[in-house]
Simulated scan of single mutants.
Amino acid sequence: MSDARSTRRTFLTGVAAMGLAGRTLLRSGDAAAAVHAAKKAAGSATALPDPGHRPLGRTGFTGSRLVFGCGAALARRRRDDMLEAALESGINVFDNGTRRYYNDAETNLAPFLARHKAKRDEIFLISKAMTYVEVGPDDPISVAEARDGAETWRGLMDQSLRELGVDHVDAYYVMAAHNPNLVKSEEMRRAFEAARDAGKVKYWGLSTHQNAQNVLEAAMETGAYHLAQIAITPAGWYDWADKNILPGSASMKDLRPFLDRVRESGIALIGMKAGRYLAGRKFLGWGKPDAFDDLYEADFLASGLSPFQRSYAYVLAHGLDAVNADMQSFAHLEENLAAAATSTKAFA
Rank of each mutant, 00 (worst) to 15 (best):
K282V: 15
M130G: 07
L83T: 04
A340N: 06
F347S: 10
V67G: 02
A231H: 01
D197Y: 03
K117W: 13
S2V: 13
R27M: 13
A42C: 12
K288L: 06
R115Q: 12
A150E: 00
H226Q: 14
G52H: 11
R76A: 12
A291F: 08
L246G: 03
A325K: 00
W286V: 09
A171G: 11
F11V: 09
N92C: 13
E145K: 06
L87E: 04
K345N: 12
H168F: 04
V133N: 01
A118G: 14
G90P: 02
R9P: 04
A198T: 08
E163L: 15
V135A: 08
M327Y: 07
T7I: 15
V135C: 14
E334P: 02
F300Q: 10
G63M: 07
S306F: 02
K282Q: 15
L295W: 04
A219K: 02
S160Q: 03
Q328V: 15
A298D: 15
D254A: 15
A218R: 00
A32T: 13
N92Y: 07
Y277C: 00
G60K: 10
A38L: 02
A16Q: 12
D299C: 07
V315W: 03
F258G: 01
A38E: 02
N179C: 08
D3R: 15
M272S: 11
P247M: 01
A346T: 09
D254H: 10
K243F: 04
N103M: 12
A38H: 02
Y238C: 05
A16D: 07
L269A: 08
L26I: 15
G319F: 06
L227C: 05
A176W: 00
G63A: 15
E151P: 07
D260H: 08
G165H: 10
G22C: 09
A322Y: 02
D321H: 07
A34V: 09
L316M: 11
V215I: 14
Q210M: 10
Y172M: 03
L12S: 10
N214C: 04
Y238V: 04
I270P: 00
D294K: 11
A338F: 03
A218Q: 01
E151D: 15
H209D: 00
H318M: 04
Y203F: 14
A241C: 05
H226K: 09
L83C: 08
V262W: 02
S6T: 13
I267Q: 00
A110M: 12
Q309E: 15
A42T: 10
S311G: 01
R8I: 14
H226D: 12
G29V: 09
G287F: 01
A298R: 15
A150M: 01
V67T: 06
G60T: 10
W204K: 06
E297I: 07
A212Q: 14
H178R: 06
D95L: 02
Q328A: 08
R77Y: 10
H168C: 09
A322S: 13
M1C: 03
Y102V: 03
G69E: 04
L255A: 13
